[in-house]
Amino acid sequence: MDVPGLCLFFGVIVPSLAVVSFFGGFAWKAIGWARSPVPFHIPITCGQQRSLPWIRSNRLDNPHTPMGAALRVALAVLLFRPLLRNTMTEIYAGPKLTYAPSRWLWLFAVMFHWSMLVIVLRHLRLFVEPVPAWVLTLQRFDRFFEVGHPVIHASTVLFVLGLGLLLLRRLSSPQLRYISILNDYFPLFLLLGIGATGTLLRHYSNSDAAAIKEFVMGLVTLSPLAVSGIPALFYVHLFLVSVLLAYFPWSKLMHMPGVLMSPTLNLANNSRAVRHVNPWNPPVGVHSYAEYEDEFRGRMIEAGLPVDKL
């Protein structure tokens, strides 16, 4: 290894530790969840159950098969479907309550999460050689303004806009400000920082994409190289990404795997048809019929009720 000083620290050591924290922490946390059993079958049902053949059941929101439940989770993950139901409750003199549809959170969340996914996938061009054809296709579809060079991607615009709006939403609503903790603001600012440095790197610095790729390829092949022509801004970007990766498993960002494992969403509503087993089902003392009859036998006989023991 012949990488000098600061470059070694910000270019190799920090990202390596971050990757270890990310994968290690992610696995530790998710395995930790998986180690706790799901003792009871507790899906939240929306819409009609499957019961009588002539009543149409709601297969998407009240699935009765594991496949249906998987589809429900997929729609929650990919389309944030529960947020489409969102309403805003208001009270007026009278008194009168109204529940107006409110889909801003859905919109901002979709903007941010989907653009982030596209951006992460676009970055594969720096990690893989040769660059897969589908990554190039994705980039082509992501073009926003054809004018100028390099082109501005739609995902870049939506990412920054989505994050900004999520932050604005959190700051402008008194209720949201009240429930927010540091952990809610930190990732927003971090991601905005990552977006800003990334955009600057691409559009305003004299960065040499080939040099960056050479450096990144050195990292991922575990043989870091000293590469010239890499701007300091790149190390800032890389550092912020490292912080995000390191922070991820220890934070609310774990909602990503959490939604997949949530027993209220990923179980089918079939608990009367298929028995769900609780591995720790504890024995409990039940007041037995015999004890009950012993206490009330005289009165039962008097009342003409049948008894087991005369």
């Binding site: 946390k29 930790g32 969840w33 998986a34 706790s36 059993p37 799901v38 003792p39 507790i42 949201l176 429930i179 927010s180 903790i181 809610d184 609310k252 774990m254 909602h255 959490g258 939604v259 494992m261 949530s262 027993p263 209220t264």
Partner: peptide
């Protein structure tokens, strides 16, 4: 309870 663990960890407020 897996539910308890996950519900403690995943809320984004």
């Amino acid at each position: 309870y897996r539910s308890f663990k996950i519900f403690m960890d995943t809320c984004v407020r």
